[in-house]
Design a protein around this nucleic acid. Structure first.
Length: 284
DNA sequence: CACTTGACCTGTCCGC
DNA sequence: TGCGGACAGGTCAAGT
């Protein structure tokens, strides 16, 4: 799925398009993906759209609609003027070059200015309607700080690494309670940036390595945001265009290709149950 | 506690 | 060409 930069890119665009608008109609075609009564959303006005970790949050008066895209979820907004097909940037693939809605479209929301389609090939994503602040708080309570919050300080990070010293650094970065929003792609990229192997135990990192990793996280996220995120295959921005971060990624999905820094071939191994890409020379 | 596996789904890709 | 298996951005529960 979309990780933090992808979700952030989507949220900024949604915000621009939808805040202040009323939901004129909502059609749920695959009911298991929507938790709550979708009909309660009718005629509700969206007052804000934000993000916490990888969760998208729509505020509608006192209640909230939260959306998790998981692995293959997409939100595509088609302005009324465009008809049923978004402008697809880059190279459209077989699946998502289909006119909307298609067989993987599970929820459709109508606005005065256009239509929002929720597509999800693997059906892991979900929408959830929450009645109030308390319900929202419960959903996002377990998240650690965002990478750009003051709470995410070097000393906070150092302490988390120390208390989870036996965990491998890759597992730690994927743990949403440490920092919210990191997924497999940016875990690999930031670990490379810090020059540390993904298999290293958190407690074994030197002060210098911790410091490097801490500063690599915002650096990688900002770079990815500048590229509109990563389109590994399914991810799309809400106008259907792709993110271009893979063009500058150093290790993710570059197995067998020469490291951009030293030329050694990038390797892949399973760490924390996930494919982990690394340079055997640059990372110690 | 930390790690692995399986589950949730469907599609693609690779080797035989 | 067809078939089986591995794998894919996330997360949770259960087992070791």
């Amino acid at each position: 799925m979309p990780e933090l930069p992808e979700v952030e890119t989507i949220v900024l665009a949604l915000k621009k398009m939808l805040v202040g608008q009323k939901i004129l109609n909502i059609e749920v075609r695959l009911s298991k993906l929507f938790h709550g009564r979708a009909s309660e959303l009718l005629n509700q006005k969206i007052t804000d759209i934000s993000r916490r970790g990888k969760i998208i949050i729509w505020q509608l008066g006192d209640c909230y609609l939260i959306i998790h895209l998981k692995m293959t979820g997409q939100l595509i907004f088609v302005p009324s003027s465009l008809g049923s097909r978004p402008v697809i940037g880059g190279h459209p693939d077989k699946l998502y070059a289909l006119p909307l809605p298609h067989q993987y479209t599970h929820i459709i929301v109508q606005f005065a200015t256009g239509t929002l389609y929720f597509n999800d090939l693997r059906q892991f994503g979900w929408w959830k309607l929450l009645p109030n602040d308390a319900a929202l708080k419960k959903e996002i309570d377990h998240f650690g700080p965002e990478y750009d919050w003051p709470e995410f300080s070097l000393s906070y990070f150092r302490e988390k690494l120390a208390t989870r010293g036996k965990s491998r650094i890759k597992s730690l970065l994927l743990d949403q309670s440490i920092v919210a929003g990191i997924g497999n792609i940016y875990a690999d990229e930031s670990i490379f940036c810090a020059g540390v192997l993904p298999t290293r135990q958190a407690g074994s990192l030197s002060e210098g390595e911790i410091n490097r990793l801490y500063h690599c996280l915002p650096k990688i996220f900002r770079l990815a945001l500048d590229h509109g995120g990563t389109s590994s295959r399914d991810y799309r921005q809400i106008d259907g265009s792709q993110g271009t971060f893979l063009k500058v990624a150093n290790v993710y999905r570059r197995t067998g290709l020469p490291c951009r820094v030293c030329g050694q071939l990038i390797r892949v191994a399973k760490v924390a149950g996930r494919s982990s890409h690394f340079c055997p020379n640059c990372q110690k």
